[in-house]
Structure formats: structure tokens, C-alpha cells
């Protein structure tokens, strides 16, 4: 991994996606995608259901291949490393490129503390003192510390949905990834919890590169620096996702180049 400049406290990581084509068995899910994720930006992937935005996101940290028969063509690079290179271990990719899912996953039968410590131990951290420090730091960074500091030994299921989602985020950032992927992180949450997550996203941008999939166009407008719009190509025999256009969020929402984007954003389709 390249580290940008010494002056910047947090290393800047970019991702480069070229001719990325996800498959489910023999069925191609999305037309080949070219996409750049720039350091310290939030890139939003938006579009109607079935347009392949989540599939593309899952290709960015090799979670796509966790589905039986799913595979990928094309290249995805984190900085200068091809994450699909045969010499690269998928589990290492996922430690470097973390992921937060739609449903908040508090690991059952684990305490709040253990939810975060489990990933750290995996990284070889054993000393109790260091674990304590890292767990606290992760919870602070996820804006959750003050709410849970007195009940670290309780099960994660004792938390509300929004808190569980921030716990999931804390678990992800505890291992200090380069990039964090969010797969509709707020679609199971109430508006207040959503706002808290969005505030957290803007905070995290200072330190991480972020890609977020969202159904919620306003959410993309609120948090994303740049936006990529996906649509479903209905003319094909099987529905095929296609990247229609990408650009700065302002440009996409004010002056979309593609008429399909305009139709989607104005609510005529999707």
C-alpha cells in the first residue's frame, strides 16, 4: 500500500475499478464498470432495486465470491494492488477494505466489548491493555462510547438498531481498514438514527475512503462527494445492471447528463 504524504495524518487510499463484471453463475449481473474511488471521499452508488449497485459494492472487497457460483471478471485495485490477484488472500482484502451491512449485525452470544475485540484478536492483538484501548477508541470513533461505556459486558442485542449499526461500524474501524464499504447502512433505521450515522460518515471521511450504497437519494445528496448512478437495462433478455453516469453529487443532482438519471432523480422511474 502506498502512503500518500507524511504531512497527512491519515493515509490516503484510492480504489481503481476497471471493466469489473460480476457474474452469478453464467448470468452476467452488471455491464462492465469503470469507476474511481478517490482518497478521503464518499462515493455514493444509487439506483433502483436490482440495478446491481450492491453487487458492485460487494466486488470491491471480494464479498461477492462468498455467494455460491458467483465470480468476477475485470480488475479492482486498492492503491496499486490488484485485490483479485491470485497471490492475494481474500481475508486480508476484507481486513483492509471493511464492510458494514444493511442489517445491523451484533454478533449474538457476544458482549459489546467482544463484538469489537474479536476482530482485533484475529489481527494478533492479545494483551488486555491494548485490547481495552483499541476497543474504547473504536467505540469513541463510532460515537458510541458514551452510550455503552457502562455496559460493555452486555450482549450487543441489548442495543437499539441504530446503536447496533454504530457497533457494526466500530467493529469495522477497529481493525483500521483503508476503505469502508457501506451497503444501505440506514435502510433499517429510524430517521434520528439515520442522521447520527450520516454525521458519523462525514466524520469518518477524514480518515477513510468510503463507498456507500443507498436507496435514499436525499442521503446521497447529503453525504456524498461524488455519486454514481446505476439503472436496470430492461431491453436485454435478462435484466442487466448498468452504470449510467458518475460525477460530483452536485452535478448529478443539478445537471445530469443522461436522461435516464434525470428521470430517476425526478421520480419518473425506479
Amino acid at each position: 500500500m502506498t502512503v500518500a504524504t507524511q504531512a497527512v495524518a491519515h493515509p490516503a487510499h484510492r480504489m481503481t475499478v476497471r471493466q469489473l463484471t460480476p457474474f452469478y453463475g453464467k448470468r452476467q449481473a452488471v455491464q462492465a464498470v469503470d469507476l474511481d474511488v478517490r482518497p478521503h471521499e464518499i462515493l455514493a452508488l444509487i439506483g433502483p432495486s436490482g440495478c446491481g449497485k450492491s453487487t458492485v459494492l460487494r466486488c470491491l472487497n471480494r464479498m461477492h465470491e462468498a455467494i455460491p457460483y458467483a465470480h468476477v471478471a475485470g480488475t479492482v485495485k486498492l492503491d496499486d494492488t490488484d485485490i483479485y490477484s491470485p497471490r492475494i488472500d481474500a481475508t486480508l482484502v476484507r481486513r483492509k477494505i471493511g464492510m458494514v451491512f444493511q442489517m445491523p449485525i451484533a454478533l449474538r452470544t457476544r458482549s459489546i466489548y467482544e463484538n469489537i475485540a474479536v476482530g482485533l484478536r484475529l489481527g494478533g492483538i492479545r494483551s488486555k491493555g491494548e485490547l481495552d484501548g483499541r476497543v474504547e477508541q473504536a467505540l469513541r470513533d463510532a460515537n458510541l462510547w458514551d452510550e455503552v461505556k457502562d455496559k460493555l459486558a452486555l450482549s450487543g442485542l441489548a442495543l437499539s438498531g441504530g446503536q447496533q449499526q454504530r457497533l457494526s461500524i466500530a467493529r469495522t474501524i477497529a481493525v483500521v481498514p483503508a476503505v469502508i464499504l457501506f451497503d444501505e447502512p440506514c435502510s433499517a433505521l429510524d430517521p434520528i438514527s439515520t442522521l447520527k450515522i450520516e454525521a458519523l460518515l462525514l466524520q469518518l471521511r477524514e480518515r477513510y475512503t468510503i463507498v456507500i450504497v443507498t436507496h435514499n437519494m436525499q442521503q446521497a445528496a447529503r453525504v456524498a462527494d461524488r455519486t454514481a448512478v446505476f439503472m436496470v437495462e430492461q431491453s436485454a433478455a435478462v435484466p442487466l445492471g448498468v452504470l449510467v453516469e458518475e460525477g460530483t453529487t452536485d452535478q448529478i443532482f443539478s445537471t445530469p447528463k443522461d436522461s435516464r438519471t434525470e428521470d430517476y432523480l425526478s421520480g419518473r422511474v425506479g
Binding site: N61, A66, T172
Partner: peptide, 11 residues
């Protein structure tokens, strides 16, 4: 999703 959460930690 629970398995995926574990995988996404790099486990």
C-alpha cells in the same frame, strides 16, 4: 448475514 459480518472483519 452473520457469516458475512464475520467474513467482512477479515475472518
Amino acid at each position: 448475514a452473520v457469516r458475512e459480518a464475520a467474513m467482512a472483519m477479515g475472518a
